[in-house]
């Protein structure tokens, strides 16, 4: 891997990114770098633009201005080049979005076969190993609806990992879960952190942010308001908006 810019470019680099929905600006001048192996948690009130930021990184949301680079390469426009890049960027959605007409193991093995051209047998074997790793190998032959939310989200993480991504994006992975299922998903995510995966996590789980994040990015009104280590953010937030946000969360 050669890069003209630096020996090791940041895994994700966003420079002056702007995004509007109609006339409503949702991302304003976003500048963000995430290094290899770094875990960044994005916090903020709803409507702050956290999910949109996450979704611009693999161009599920096209941007209106600025620049996004993944591992030193600029994000391509629609087409095969974009598909290739997306294959290297894992994504986990709030609503899981498992393929409803495929079994769990088929969900995990599908993209490696279609995109990476791995043989079906190898993909199946790898998928089973991943399902064991997230603790649901006994659910392999069931359909998504037959699983609990927590199991579905763990399957979705396995599906993303099957592509051996360079970086993982989590868009509120526990927000659609019943409270008792949040921990099992966070445990899988924490194990990924330990293995050195580069991650960007949009979440409301303060405990996870405190324990697992290298940096906390606080967004409000489409802007990055603070970017600091979790200790500093939770004990001594600099901005009023962050203080206000933390005050609301910690009082109930």
């Amino acid at each position: 891997m050669s890069s003209p810019a630096k020996a090791t470019p940041p895994m994700i680099r966003m420079v002056g990114v702007h995004k509007r929905f109609g006339s409503l600006p949702v991302l304003k001048d976003i500048n963000l770098e995430i290094s290899r192996g770094e875990v960044v948690v994005v916090l903020g009130p709803s409507g702050a633009g956290k999910s949109t930021l996450c979704r611009t990184i693999n161009r599920l949301e096209p941007i209106d201005g600025g620049r996004i680079e993944i591992d030193g390469a600029p994000l391509p426009a629609e087409g095969r080049a974009l598909a290739r890049l997306r294959a290297d960027v894992g994504m986990v959605f709030q609503q899981f979005n498992l393929f409803a007409h495929k079994t769990i193991v088929q969900n995990v093995a599908l993209a490696p076969v279609l995109v990476r051209k791995i043989s079906k047998a190898d993909a199946h074997q790898a998928a089973m190993q991943l399902l064991a790793r997230v603790g649901i190998s006994d659910q392999a032959d069931k359909y998504p609806v037959q699983l609990s939310g927590g199991q579905q989200q763990r399957a979705a993480i396995a599906r993303a990992l099957a592509m051996r991504p360079k970086v993982m994006l989590f868009d509120e992975p526990t927000s659609a879960l019943d409270p008792e299922m949040v921990q099992e998903v966070l445990d899988v995510m924490t194990s990924l952190v330990r293995e050195g995966m580069t991650m960007l996590v949009v979440t409301h789980e303060m405990g996870f942010a405190r324990r697992a994040a290298d940096r906390v990015v606080f967004m409000s009104g489409g802007e990055i308001v603070e970017d600091s280590p979790p200790d500093q953010f939770f004990t001594a937030p600099r901005s009023d908006r962050a203080k206000d946000f933390l005050g609301k969360i910690l009082t109930h």
Binding site: N58, L60, R80, A83, R84, L85, R86, A87, D88, V89, G90, M91, F93, Q95, N97, L98, F99, A100, L110, A111, L114, V115, A156, R159, A160, M163
Partner: peptide, 17 residues
């Protein structure tokens, strides 16, 4: 659901796939 196509695109599948 839109999420089905989004998940598929996010995995690197092409439009036709």
């Amino acid at each position: 659901e839109v999420g089905q196509a989004e998940a598929s695109r996010a995995l690197g599948l092409t439009f036709v796939q």
